[in-house]
């Protein structure tokens, strides 16, 4: 390959903590990799596992799911519910061969702009090393060829 591989990363974040943390990284002019696309949700409790599957279908090589630290959820409990879901869904994805390194979870508060920037950088670097998630994306190509029949 001539050019280095640039992974596509989709982040599902809650608006009260991680989205605000990402805003803080911006207002503090921290620099990080441009590979991430952020989808804003009211709360991690709203982040359905379906979103992760759809992001993978759309060519994501990595997915980040992030919200408020335990105890800090604006909605009091949303992140606790999310954590249970993530525990189960992550195990399920790992068992079906979707590498754990590609689907990451974090707590990033509205004050942790630096943590957000660092995480995006390290995540991008990790996924870059792993390479494109061709195994999954090939499933998608199959549909596209099939649909031409």
């Amino acid at each position: 390959m001539s050019e280095p591989f640039e992974p596509k990363i989709v982040a599902f974040v809650c608006t009260y903590c991680t989205y605000a943390g990402a805003d803080l990284a911006g207002t503090s002019r921290m620099k990080y990799a441009s590979n991430v696309r952020i989808v804003r949700l009211p709360c991690t409790g709203r982040i359905s596992p379906m979103f992760i599957l759809k992001a993978l279908q759309k060519g994501a090589d990595g997915v980040l799911v992030s919200g408020c630290h335990p105890g800090d959820c604006h909605f009091a409990q949303g992140n606790y519910h999310a954590r249970r879901r993530w525990t189960v869904f992550r195990a399920l994805l790992a068992f079906t061969g979707i590498p754990e390194q590609r689907i990451r979870f974090s707590w990033i508060s509205a004050a942790e702009g630096a943590k957000f920037a660092e995480l995006i950088n390290s995540l991008t670097e990790d996924i870059r090393k792993l390479g494109p998630f061709e195994q999954y994306h090939e499933l998608q190509t199959v549909i596209e060829t099939q649909s031409t029949y």
Partner: peptide
């Protein structure tokens, strides 16, 4: 239901 409840001390080894 397991996914409609939680404990504050549920394990979370994998969350950064």
């Amino acid at each position: 239901p397991v996914l409609a409840t939680f404990r504050q001390d549920d394990p979370e080894t994998f969350i950064l």
